[in-house]
Design a protein around this nucleic acid. Structure first.
Length: 214
DNA sequence: ATCTGAGGTGTGAAAGCC
DNA sequence: GGCTTTCACACCTCAGAT
């Protein structure tokens, strides 16, 4: 899904409840390695296989949601989308984009940060820890980075679902076949997730739900 | 409502790497 | 030689200007 500078697709979308409506919060995302392995796609078995050790770690980067900071009421009222998040494989990137290695597995994490804990938040600095900061991650959002698609079904999926790729769509495609394909890919399961905070601003327990995509 | 420029897509060929 | 990465390209969306 990545090369040079690309958006993440499909984008992560989350819904949060349980925030203090009057408290200001930052929402941020970072992406961490799942393991220290490099992968390659094996066509004949249609599986990702370990192909060696991971490349050297890249500088940690943070995507701060552009609506930040905003009140808990604002965040809870909307579905929070990370569709503007950009990924790069350029380790020398100085624009604050999230840097990843190709052919590695990563886990996106959503961070909810109380404003007083996030005043020195920066795209090029690790997310602060402690009281007032909470991270959420969902195992089904783990993904493998590539510079070229390894699976033609994924290419077709993206062409049909990403508006910017409309120019590559065929007019007579079999929609039912596509829907079946969508169902078969875990990462494509509804990207809308819900985080529930029980005791804000004290920071909370995690709970999440899966919603069927309309 | 229409125009326009910036920027987001996958493709396919060529280059680079091991 | 096979796999991965990079690049130019055409086509598209989107947002701001008029």
């Amino acid at each position: 899904m990545i090369v040079l500078l690309k958006r993440m697709f499909p984008a992560m979308r989350v819904k949060i409840s349980g925030l203090d409506p009057h408290q200001q919060y930052y929402i941020a995302m970072d992406i961490v390695p799942v393991d220290n392995k490099r992968y390659r796609y094996v066509y004949h078995s249609s599986k990702w296989m370990v192909a060696g050790n991971a490349d050297s770690p890249v500088p940690p980067r943070v995507y701060i949601h552009p609506d930040s900071p905003a009140s808990g009421e604002t965040w809870m009222r909307q579905v929070i989308s990370f569709d503007k998040l950009k990924l790069t494989n350029n380790e020398l990137d100085d624009q604050g984009h999230i840097i990843l290695h190709s052919m590695h597995k990563y886990q996106p994490r959503v961070h909810v940060i109380r404003k007083d804990c996030g005043d020195d938040l920066s795209p090029v600095k690790p997310i602060p820890s402690g009281e007032g900061v909470k991270a959420f991650s969902f195992p089904e959002t783990v993904f493998t980075t590539v510079t070229a698609y390894q699976n033609q079904q994924i290419t077709r999926l993206k062409i049909d679902r990403n508006p910017f790729a409309k120019g590559f769509r065929d007019s007579g495609r079999n929609r039912m076949g596509l829907e079946a394909l969508v169902e078969s890919y875990a990462f494509w399961r509804p990207s809308l997730r819900t985080l529930t905070f029980e005791d804000i601003p004290g920071i909370p327990k995690q709970e999440h739900y899966l919603y069927p995509r309309a």
